[in-house]
Every structure is written in C-alpha cells, then in structure tokens.
Simulated assay, not measured.
Amino acid sequence: MITAAVLALYAMVAVVVLPRLLSRGQWAQRAPRLAICVWLAACASALASMVFSALAVAIPASVIGHGLAAFFEACADILSEGAPLSSPGTRAALLGAGLIVARFTYCGAAIVVRARWERRRHADMLNLLGRRDGALDAVVLDHDEAAAYCLPGREGRAVITTAALHSLAPEQVAAVLAHEQAHLRGRHHLLLAAAETFCRAFPRLPLFARARGEVARLVELLADDVAARHHCRLHIAAALVRLATGRAPAFALGAGGETALTRVRRMLSPAAPLRRRERVAGLAAVTVLLAGPVAVAVIPGVSSFLAHHCHTISIF
C-alpha cells in the first residue's frame, strides 16, 4: 500500500507542480528538442504513476515474491470467487487502471484516425488543385493568401500558395520550405498527436493542457533551428513576418501562426545554446521521469522475490 500511496501522491503533485517548474526560464527556447522530450516524459510519468498506483493496490508485492507461476495464478484468481485478491478494493483498483489505459488508447486512436481522414481529403484536394514543383520540392496551390504548411503522413508534402511565392524572395521561399521539410522529416505531427492525446484523455489536468501548447510551440522552434542550419536566420525571420497571418489547416503544420512574431525575435536574437552540463541535466531529468514510476512500482516486488528465494539477500 505504501508503493501505491507514493505513486498516487506523485501523480497528483506532478500534474500541478511540473508545468510550473518546466515553464521557468528560457531554457526551452535554447533547446527545443530536449524540451519536447522533457514535456512528453513528464506526461508519461504522471500517467504511468496513475496506472502503477492502481496495480500496486491490486497486486501486492508479496505475490510477486512467490515466483512468476504464483503471480500468474494470483492474477487468474482475481476473477474467481473467494480468492485472496478478489476483494472489492482489488477489483476497483484493476478497473481504475483499465479505464485509464482504455481512455488514453481510445483518445489516441480517435485523434490518429480523424487526422488521417482529414489529411487524405486535403491530399485529394491538392491533387486536383495544386501542381507539383520539382525545383521547390513542394506543391504550389493557387490562393490569394500567403501561406506555407506541410501535410504530414506516409506521402508527406510541403505546400506553398502562389500569394506566398509572389510576396517572398527566392531565398525566403527556400528557407520557409526548409522549415516545412524539417516538420516532415522529424515527424513532428506524431509529437503533436501524443501531446493532444494526453490533453484529450485528461482535459482538466494542468500538466497535460500545458504540455499540448508547449509541444506545439516547441516543434515550430525546432523546425526553425533545423532550417537555420542551411539558411540565413534573417531570411527565415523575414518569411515568418510575411506569413504571420497565414492560416494552415488544423491538421497541418504551418510556418505562420500565433507564435510567428516570437519566433522572429528568436531568429534575430538567438540565445546561447545549453551548455553540456545543462544538456546532461535535461537528459537525466527525462530518464528519471520515465524510469522513476517504473522503479517505484517494481522494486518492492523484486525485493519480495529476492527475500523469498534468497533468504540472505534483502534490499530493504
């Protein structure tokens, strides 16, 4: 029960405290890739703690200590009347864990299926109205609004409107299309889908709501950084200014949008990258967030197993 209480307490604290901690300072803008990993790891950590807390109530560590055969037998006994693990509390704990996993899985599947359907419809429209430009490696769409975006998927493609081509210089067009190609190569739509799944599944929890917005912002910063490796930052900034009001489909990733002006300032005045010590600390945080709940849930069972089979060995 101590393990379950620790995991449940951590989950409750994490969903409230972690978004405040992770939002402090400007470190995320200096290392957007690492920041995305930290935010998603924090969400996974909180969710895993919820599930493991319920499982810790349902399956005591002593059950694991009697060996895997007894463990599976005990799991089967949960469904039988009069079994030691068939108490109402155990059934409620297992039901709670199952509901959490089912809710997350359902929301994730719904998001992926709907996004694929919308992208397929948009791709059919592009096949009819757009024209492939091999020199730009993009689809050109006749439209009077300057916009550039990418359509993720198995046959991902970058899209730019004729209005954008007319308003941007050639080097700016190349820079903004490099931004969109970075989205496609990095499969950033999967990162956004993961963050959206956490938020959709548990909409009232601050961590998941904040993570969705942060991941959406950070993937744009990351694509800017990738484009800046081969294109002048000034050209990227100028393109962002001209495309700031351009609207991309909700299921696509656009170069403009609400974060465009903030990204312009970042391109013109880049912050110093994180030092090696800071990056190591960030990677350590990701490791702790992902491995922490698993370790807390598993160690009591491992300790019980060792105590049962090796009477001279004890972790605690």
Rank of each mutant, 00 (worst) to 15 (best):
A223K: 01
G186P: 09
A223Q: 03
A252I: 10
A223V: 00
L234C: 15
T161E: 04
A195Y: 14
V173H: 08
A194H: 09
V215W: 00
H179G: 01
L218S: 04
S167H: 10
A216F: 02
A195C: 05
A211M: 02
A164T: 12
A209I: 06
T161D: 05
L234I: 15
D225H: 11
Q172F: 05
L240G: 02
D224A: 11
R185L: 13
L165A: 04
L243Q: 05
L192A: 13
R247L: 12
F198G: 06
Q172K: 10
L190C: 09
L192S: 11
A194E: 09
R242F: 10
G156H: 08
A174H: 08
A163I: 11
A244T: 07
I236F: 00
A227G: 03
V219D: 10
L207A: 02
E214K: 11
R229V: 14
A227I: 00
A193P: 01
V219H: 05
F208C: 07
P170N: 09
R185M: 13
A216N: 13
A228M: 01
V241D: 14
F208V: 08
T197F: 03
R210V: 11
A178Q: 10
A163K: 11
R212V: 06
A163Q: 09
A164W: 07
G254L: 02
D224F: 06
L192H: 12
Q181T: 08
H231S: 14
L191E: 13
L221E: 15
A216T: 11
G156R: 04
L253T: 10
D224Q: 06
L222T: 13
I236W: 05
G213A: 07
L192R: 14
G213D: 11
R229M: 13
V219L: 09
L177A: 12
A216L: 12
V159M: 09
F251K: 08
Q172P: 09
P203D: 02
